[in-house]
């Protein structure tokens, strides 16, 4: 193994693989497992997964490349993802994006120099009744306004 920990390898073999009738189905959950451990999925991680599952690395890479939630390069400790689809757009998502940009000093798609925050815009997060919706790592923040951005960032910094 190049980058996968023994715990992850064990989890893939003992928890993920037995759930599925065919081995290829374990590719997505294994990619999730690796991202959870390392924060992103590197080429070495792809090779490791292929080795554990005994499938071609090309197949793992093909799958990885298709799905937007898998990070193909390192992201910040907190990945801020602002929904800009129509319902959020109507209720001011672009103002929220601007507020994050200004306070973090980064453009969309960038990470702060200290590696703490990455900022992205994303498509519908499926919580339109509580627009504007922002996903930060696994958590949903709802009813976000530009005024609330500073407080959200403060709370995140304190929890870091």
């Amino acid at each position: 193994m190049k980058v996968l920990s023994d715990t992850t390898v064990k989890r893939i073999k003992e928890e993920i693989l037995p759930r599925y009738p065919e081995v290829t189905s374990a590719i997505l959950p294994s990619l999730w497992e690796v991202q959870r451990e390392l924060g992103w999925v590197s080429a070495d991680a792809v090779k490791d997964i292929a080795e554990v599952l005994n499938v071609p690395a090309e197949l793992v890479f093909d799958t990885l490349s298709f799905y937007t939630m898998f990070q193909k390069r390192p992201v910040g400790k907190f990945h801020i993802q602002v929904c800009t689809n129509v319902s959020c757009d109507l209720l001011g998502a672009m103002g929220v994006v601007e507020a994050f940009k200004k306070q973090l000093g980064v453009e969309v798609g960038e990470t702060t120099q200290d590696g703490m925050f990455s900022l992205s815009t994303v498509e519908c997060l499926g919580a339109c009744g509580e627009a504007v919706v922002v996903q930060i790592n696994d958590e949903y923040y709802t009813g976000v306004t530009p005024e609330k951005v500073a407080e959200i960032l403060e709370t995140l910094k304190r929890s870091a």
Binding site: E22, T24, S25, A26, I27, L28, L31, W32, L59, D62, T63, S65, F66, Y67, T68, M69, F70, E123
Partner: peptide, 20 residues
Amino acid sequence: AGAYVCGEETALINSIEGRR
């Protein structure tokens, strides 16, 4: 893992099979 098209039933099946 973030693909709207996977809500289409045959795309969903491919995604469970671990493919694009």
